Simulated scan of single mutants.
Amino acid sequence: MRPIKLFLILFMFLCIGAKQTAVAQQKEDVIYLADGSQKKGKIVSISDELIKFSYTGEAVLYELKKDKISKIVFANGREEIFGQNSSAEKSSNKAEERSAGNLLAVIPFEIASNDQSIMTDVMRKKIQEACVEAMQGQKLAVQFQDPRTTNALLSKNGINFSEIDNHTPDELAKILQVDYVVMGVYDIENKGASTYGSSSSSYGNKQNGDKEKGSSVTTNNSYTTTNYNTKVHMTIYDGTGRQLFSDSKSPLFGTLDSYKGALKTLAKKVPLTK
């Protein structure tokens, strides 16, 4: 056999062998663990928590927890990222949900009253929480920002409750990173106090042989109550400051906590339904 022909035959065998080796290498999936080590083999299945695989040349199945894996490079070249990058992906998904326009924050309510003693931040927070609770009871197509988160973000941006009225709805939506803001006012008119009471008299024992009664003892019972006229105003804006809803409700009986029933009534009228 001529040397040139023999060389060509050997070259062809070498090429075929190299190709088969490359094909064999491409059929391996490579698992990169969080500790820097690697495992090569065949990925059999991937569930929410576990990955099942077998080593190259073996039939035994092994399991790995997904939180121990940083990434997988499959035989076809596709990569799947886990761990910290996966968390970043979840955060991105949350951001996408937020951008879909469904996150709502309730701003602490303003209080308008002729009684300065009840215009407190504590009451503003109570009305804010009651508003969130009332709206959560309805089938609305929104997610609610926790009132504590809302108040913390306002504080971090130097906005006191008494200064909320100095900011536009779109400014507040941007600061709170929400798509809707609920703003409101609780009107409380102190109409003064009323005192109600009653009295009763009792007599001592009759004296012997005397038809007239002895001395009388009178007992007085009284209580004082404060009368209020109240009204709840609620307004909803979108992230651009456009007004979507505005309405008011005056409770039948005016008490300091009558805002609860009024908010439940207003929440039923909110147009952000599914």
Rank of each mutant, 00 (worst) to 15 (best):
M1K: 08
R2C: 08
P3Q: 11
I4T: 11
F7Y: 14
M12T: 13
M12W: 15
F13V: 12
F13W: 13
I16Q: 12
I16K: 11
G17P: 12
A18P: 04
K19R: 10
K19D: 09
A24K: 11
Q25M: 02
E28I: 01
D35Y: 03
G36M: 11
G41N: 06
G41L: 06
V44E: 14
V44K: 10
S47M: 05
D48A: 06
F53D: 09
S54E: 14
G57Q: 01
E58A: 03
A59Q: 10
K66A: 11
D67M: 11
F74K: 12
N76M: 02
R78W: 03
R78N: 02
E80A: 02
G83M: 05
A88L: 15
A88Y: 15
A88G: 11
K90C: 02
S92F: 09
K94N: 05
A95F: 12
R98M: 09
A105S: 10
P108M: 03
A112M: 09
S113P: 01
N114Y: 07
D115F: 06
V122R: 15
I127A: 00
E129N: 11
E133L: 09
Q136Y: 05
A141Y: 15
V142K: 11
F144M: 04
N151S: 13
N151D: 12
L153C: 09
L154P: 07
K156L: 07
N157I: 04
N160F: 07
N160M: 08
E163S: 05
E163A: 04
I164E: 10
H167Q: 00
H167S: 01
P169I: 09
E171L: 02
L172E: 06
I175M: 06
I175K: 08
Y180A: 03
V181P: 13
V181H: 14
G184R: 14
G184Y: 14
V185D: 15
D187Y: 08
E189M: 01
E189P: 05
G197C: 02
S202K: 11
Y203T: 08
G209P: 01
D210C: 12
T218L: 00
T225R: 12
N227S: 07
K231T: 09
T235L: 00
Y237L: 12
G241T: 04
S248E: 14
S250N: 12
S250Y: 05
L252Y: 13
G254A: 01
S258P: 13
S258W: 13
S258R: 14
G261P: 01
K264P: 00
T265K: 15
K268S: 08
K274Q: 00
